[in-house]
């Protein structure tokens, strides 16, 4: 990880978003205040959800299918807009961001989607590199990082294979690698271990811990108790759109 020490996660895409991590208290990366999301006509996905995630924290969101976990993650990367309430990422009110600022914000958030959202005809390498290309990283840096991630997730042999020809477990790891490629200050992972065996689950969690140690806040929506039970990280449970803290 030596080569990424200069790339420590921080929100700096707008002058007002300075990293306050040097202070006594860790800076708040994500803040939700009484967020409600209602899908038309009247399906309440989230109701008065409030929570904060600070720099270098891992937050687990649990709950039954349809409880609102994916909606919550979509709100954080602005794929959805809240019906009510305030969402701030790195001190920026998401409701007030214009198109360009939204794109800059998305560059600072790594998202591993539940449905992967890979390009099936492009190779594993291209799928991961794409996240770095949109930030105009240089080719050498991109190659080095992609190879490193593939090695960590045991995908080196699949580097040139089209993503569409991989198993679901492999696709899931490619999606995680893409989310982690830029070592972003915030990583959102939706069921990141849903298709993985215990060994690859452990590899993925090692990668998340590594990113977390370098300062990334990570929010993981999961059903998989094995990745959060017995850990000291924050856990929240969503029940019919309402958020409850499980541990302190």
């Amino acid at each position: 990880m030596q080569e990424h020490t200069e790339d420590r996660p921080t929100f700096t895409f707008q002058p007002s978003m300075e990293d306050h991590s040097e202070g006594d208290e860790k800076s708040i990366i994500v803040e939700l205040v009484k967020v409600t999301k209602i899908y038309p006509p009247d399906v309440v996905a989230l109701r008065n959800v409030s929570f904060t995630a600070r720099k270098g924290e891992i937050v687990f969101l649990t709950g039954a299918s349809g409880a609102g976990k994916t909606t919550l993650l979509k709100l954080l990367c602005r794929l959805e807009r809240p019906t009510k309430g305030l969402i701030e990422i790195g001190g920026n009110d998401l409701n007030k961001l214009n198109s360009n600022a939204t794109q800059k914000l998305r560059q600072r958030i790594g998202v591993a989607y539940q449905d992967f959202r890979l390009l099936p005809r492009q190779s594993v390498y291209q799928n991961i590199a794409m996240a770095m290309e949109v930030q105009f990283k240089n080719k050498k840096e991109i190659k080095q990082r992609v190879l490193e991630l593939l090695e960590k997730l045991s995908l080196s042999e699949k580097i040139h294979k089209p993503a569409g020809k991989l198993s679901r477990g492999e696709q899931q790891r490619v999606a995680i690698a893409r989310a982690a490629a830029n070592v972003p200050p915030l990583i959102l992972a939706d069921e990141p271990t849903g298709n993985l065996d215990p060994q690859t689950t452990s590899q993925v969690m090692d990668l998340f811990h590594e990113l977390n140690e370098s300062g990334s806040a990570i929010i993981i929506a999961t059903h998989d108790k094995s990745i959060y039970q017995g850990t000291h990280h924050q856990q929240f449970e969503l029940q019919q759109g309402e958020l409850q803290r499980v541990n302190s």
Binding site: C77, L79, N100, Q103, K104, L105, R106, Q107, R108, I109, V111, Y113, R117, L118, L119, M130, A131, V134, Q135, R178
Partner: peptide
């Protein structure tokens, strides 16, 4: 996908 990844 490019837009999700933050392509300007």
């Amino acid at each position: 996908v490019l837009r999700y990844l933050g392509a300007t």
